[in-house]
Simulated assay, not measured.
Amino acid sequence: MIISPSVEILNKLIRHQIHNLFLLETVEEAVLARSLPEALYKTEKCFGQSKNKYYKKDGEVFFSIYHSGQYCVFLYFLARQVFLESPECRNLADKVYFLNKTLNGLDLYYEIEMPEVFHLDHPVGSVMGRASYGNNFTFSQLCTVGNNKGVFPKIGENVQMLSGSKILGQCVIGDNVIVSANTYIKDTDVPANSLVFGSSPNLVIKQRMS
């Protein structure tokens, strides 16, 4: 993977941002260094499946640390890696999570298991809750995935949430579903290969044409 401008600058940038916002302890610097390679590996695997032209350069996976969407995904993987690999440094995982939230306006907690490949486009104002997410999940700005009475949705593969859409509660969203802009799904199942719009309980569900 091509990292622009460099891994060294990325290292310095993370440390500088965390230290200026929250303070970075000496022991946390070592944990960051240990977690970074695996976070970059997962980032490369995720970006490698993107069809966005900005994620490839000269036939290789490309990661610009000054591309907010790319940096957003990377920070999620970094926070989660710190959490999984060094649970004793949970404060550091929190700092990376809050850094992501501060910079990108996205609430994506490190305890949430996103799929290996997921995509986002201008995710400002989005909140991703503790749902089950299938591979190639995509979301945009002002999207919400959350619970109703403690129950979270199950989301299949290749699901796209367009801007302002919401999926809440006891929902099973099938594979290859497009959730239209400003759609509100609550405690409702949506079959695979569908286009859905409107608001529960009066959703309109149409078969997608292949």
Rank of each mutant, 00 (worst) to 15 (best):
V96N: 10
L84I: 13
L78Y: 15
F62L: 01
S86L: 13
Y55C: 02
L84C: 11
Y71D: 15
Y54W: 03
K53T: 03
A79P: 08
C89K: 08
P87A: 15
Q70N: 05
C72D: 11
E88A: 12
S64C: 03
L75K: 06
L78T: 10
G59V: 06
Y55P: 00
D58A: 02
Q70C: 05
G69K: 00
Q81S: 14
V96Q: 00
R90H: 05
G59H: 05
Y76H: 14
I65T: 05
A93W: 03
R90E: 13
A79N: 12
A93P: 02
Q70A: 04
D94G: 00
G69M: 05
F62G: 05
Y76T: 09
K53W: 00
A79H: 08
F74N: 09
Y55F: 11
L78D: 15
F74R: 01
E88F: 13
E60Y: 01
L92I: 04
G69I: 03
L78C: 15
V96E: 11
K95R: 10
F74Q: 01
E85T: 06
R90Y: 07
E85Y: 01
K56P: 02
L84H: 00
A93F: 06
E88T: 15
L75T: 12
Y55N: 09
V61E: 09
V73N: 05
R80Q: 14
F98Q: 02
S86I: 14
H67L: 10
Q70G: 00
Y76N: 14
V73E: 09
V61M: 06
F74D: 14
Y54A: 11
E88H: 14
V82G: 13
V82R: 07
Q70I: 04
R90A: 03
N52Y: 01
G59Y: 02
V96C: 11
Y97K: 01
R80M: 13
L84S: 05
K56D: 06
